[in-house]
């Protein structure tokens, strides 16, 4: 691992009395792809949202590059420009066309001129294979296309790190592949990526590391072969068996240590 691009130290996050993250330590090296897996309510989305401070940590530190996001004096808008984020619900701006979705943030945030913003937008739309949709409105696109536009929008800002929050969970199954293909391309190009996902095949093939979270802590952290192929912890095995073959799951008691917070 080269020098860490993302560093999380002793991170705690509570929503009221509900402690969702209970001390997370994690490093993501430059160019590394880390998939975060775990049952719903395990805190994995909250962890990801803490990395660009969409959620404010209760305790602990988050570094991206050489900036400490948890420093109260940090220029958070400047740091966020280096961090692309892709949401489960796409969150494209519905009142703008696809091209405008890509150019508006460049113009308003990076102050790029019109021609430059348009050129960067066109290049990134081409990367996700949607050049022909530039003038369409998001509502006219399929979920998979919207998510690829959302990825292109984040890429147009020239981020050093990309965060993906269950990017395929809101998609119809037949549309998942196109989005994963784009993410795979990014990984191959050396983008530093942190991906919260339930796509085990993607995690196995693309991730350098897989992190299994449960109950607000990291239970297991290792290569895909270690964590998915030969999990050491019972909780990991339990989760994976439920995920890989949900039909065999019987009605049973909740796994221990679960925090009941939806993420």
């Amino acid at each position: 691992m080269s020098r860490p691009e993302i560093r999380v130290r002793a991170l705690h996050k509570s929503f009221g009395a509900d402690e969702v993250l209970r001390g997370i330590d994690l490093e993501v090296g430059r160019g590394e792809v880390v998939c975060v897996i775990g049952p719903s309510g395990s805190g994995k989305s909250t962890l990801l949202r803490c990395v660009n401070l969409l959620e404010e940590p209760t305790r602990g530190q988050v570094f991206v590059g050489d900036a400490e996001l948890t420093d109260p004096d940090v220029d958070i808008d400047a740091v966020r420009r280096r961090i692309g984020m892709v949401f489960q619900q796409f969150n494209l701006f519905p009142h703008l066309t696809v091209a405008e979705n890509l150019t508006l943030p460049q113009r308003r945030v990076l102050r790029r001129d019109k021609a430059e913003a348009a050129r960067v937008a066109a290049r990134n739309l081409a990367r996700v294979g949607l050049s022909e949709k530039a003038d369409a409105y998001p509502a006219a696109l399929s979920g998979g296309q919207q998510q690829r536009v959302a990825i292109a929008r984040a890429l147009a800002m020239g981020p050093e790190v990309m965060l993906f929050d269950e990017p395929t969970s809101a998609l119809d199954p037949e549309l998942v592949g196109d989005v994963l293909a784009v993410m795979r391309m990014l990984a191959d190009e050396g983008m530093t990526m942190m991906v919260v996902t339930h796509e085990m095949t993607f995690a196995r093939e693309v991730a350098d590391r897989v992190v299994f979270m449960d109950g607000g802590v990291i239970v297991e952290d290792g290569t895909p072969d270690q964590v998915i192929g030969a999990p050491r912890h019972a909780r990991t095995r339990h989760f994976l068996s439920r995920l890989l073959d949900p039909a065999t799951a019987a009605v049973r008691k909740e796994p221990p240590d679960r925090v009941g917070h939806g993420d």
Binding site: R80, F87, F93
Partner: peptide, 18 residues
């Protein structure tokens, strides 16, 4: 306006006012 719109804008580096 859905909360995700503000989150998307903030994550792209927009200030709250912008």
């Amino acid at each position: 306006v859905p909360k995700g719109q503000l989150e998307a804008a903030r994550s792209l580096g927009f200030s709250p006012a912008r």
